[in-house]
Amino acid sequence: MKTKLFKEEITDSDLWKSFLQGDKEAFGQIYRLYIQDLFRFGCSVIPNEDLVMDCIQEVFVDLWKYHSQLPTTERVKFYLFKCLSNKIHQEVKKNKKIKLHQEKYICEIEPCIQSCETELIQATQNQSLKEKLSKALEKLPLRQKEAVNCLFFEKFTYEETAKIMNINLRSAYTLAWKAISSLKNTI
């Protein structure tokens, strides 16, 4: 287990390094590794699948175009999220009439904790509460939703969240506080 974890960490920043040297294979692997995370995150920033896909495409095209000048990073996921967030906000600024698709019902939900470590936790998890919370999360203002997504689902620190959202630490905390406050009031 431990060796596997170690190996994965190496692979991540190593992949990035080979990509910086122009390795197209590594570029493809980075795409496969993070595409779902990026797509999910993008949809939380702006609920418009087509726009998110366009932005992801542009981010990867730019990454390839400028690969020889990009910094090395240990936090590939953070870096990619930051790129996507920037790109989406640029697009939104350019075109204020972007349509937001609000899905009417939620078919499937995913909990913040993916695998339940202990039976105790499993026992205290409550399906109806989960549904309530996920519905409430959907109704939150976009920026609040983005903050919650970064902090609780993508497991970024406050500092990383603030950088991804392009705001200061204080504002990131305030957004999250407001979000949790309205979530609290729904249960």
Binding site: R32, W64, E138, N149, K184
Partner: peptide, 28 residues
Amino acid sequence: KARAILLNLSRKKVQLSQEKEDFLFSQI
């Protein structure tokens, strides 16, 4: 209450289908 929120915090499942994932990469 805080514990209940943390344990049950959930979100809508958003996923990109395999076809779309492949299509997007071919575009890139």
